[in-house]
Nucleic acid binder design. Structure first.
Lengths: 196, 196
DNA sequence: CACAGCCTACCTTCTAGTAGGTAAATATCA
DNA sequence: TGATATTTACCTACTAGAAGGTAGGCTGTG
């Protein structure tokens, strides 16, 4: 994996926060330079171009996400608990402006104007997440803990879409509660239908 | 209502398309000038500042949206049909790059970096939409056509979030079908639970 | 005339990115 | 070991182009 010094790590963290706030065109090297406390040119030393920076950032984000999802699975045997752990992660993030949105979900909205190298990473993250959700939901169905109305994959796409939409609503209303209002019933719905 | 000449109307239409593609910072006066076929300065004649342009654009969009939602209600007596008409509208839009996303939903993702005048309009649209959805869902519940798991308002927030998330997924995957996969079960879920 | 609608020409500020230099850490090797 | 390369991490100073916006001048119409 790409080695990261303290400074380049700090640059990435800062860029991530700025992207979460305003997307790809919502931040500049100057913004990062101000926060990190080095000069613009020094950022180019670490990341020759903006695309390099954001691509690296996304690769790192995706690795963290994959590791996180794997951890959720290893620490929870119950599929419902696995989904709850995923939701709880984001519930904890929603209030914090530096992490209140999935970087990939945010960039996703700007796909038509994004460099192709970035689009590839964003798309890959969506596939990773929906595949993970589908496997958890599939597992729940196999255990007769969940009853599905469609395929596990389509249930996963619905689940993911609802979470992303909930992030958006929380941002618009400036109210963290909306996120929970939307996401909490998602898991209950899978479980409650059990008796059919 | 603000009077609009042919040209300023064209400017607004063009800006709307560009915002749908890349958000507030994703387009410039130069971009619009190229498409409309006039000079940058002439756009400033119609809309002194970028904020003026986008605010007017959003006011117009909101009026159209409100009129559209009212029309849906007047043409469909069945609440389920009203929801279907709303979903069908967006299903028809999803494939077309110039209208494949709700302008307000797109801008919503960038709220932290948006001028306050714009945020107000975006937030107002979300409230209008969720209130409309809640009233339709409430009506369905009163008629015993729908059975709700929460309040009409919370069902409405879930419905809206799912639709916005579905737009995002369709964009990421470059696949219109995902939108239908996510949105179609939304209405069925409200209905199917009826027998309880 | 007055004004709408457009123009050319310009301004300032910001954008990503480059050129080239300095000082310190780190390899390399006699 | 000590002398010598090389690399890392930063810097100042700069570029070309794009950003939003302004000043002021034409031209046609009510």
């Amino acid at each position: 994996m790409t080695k990261l010094t303290n400074t380049s790590d700090e640059i990435i963290r800062c860029a991530r926060t700025l992207i979460i706030a305003g997307g790809y065109n919502g931040f500049s090297y100057a913004d990062i330079a101000d926060v990190v406390g080095i000069r613009k040119a020094s950022i180019h030393h670490h990341f020759p171009s903006k695309v390099d920076l954001v691509r690296t950032l996304l690769q790192l984000y995706r690795e963290e996400a994959k590791a996180g999802l794997a951890t959720v699975k290893s620490y929870n045997t119950d599929p419902a608990d696995q989904l709850r752990a995923y939701i709880n992660y984001w519930t904890a993030c929603i209030g914090d402006p530096t992490s209140s949105f999935c970087v990939c979900a945010l960039l996703a909205s700007q796909i038509p104007v994004l460099p192709p190298e970035i689009v590839v990473e964003v798309r890959a993250h969506f596939r990773t997440l929906s595949t993970w959700l589908a496997s958890v939901i599939e597992e729940g169905a196999t255990q007769n803990a969940f009853s599905l109305t469609g395929t596990a994959q389509s249930e996963a796409e619905s689940f993911m879409a609802a979470v992303h939409g909930a992030m958006l609503s929380a941002r618009v209303y400036g109210d963290e509660k909306v996120f929970s209002v939307v996401t909490e019933p998602l898991i209950e719905r899978l479980i409650n239908d059990q008796g059919k």
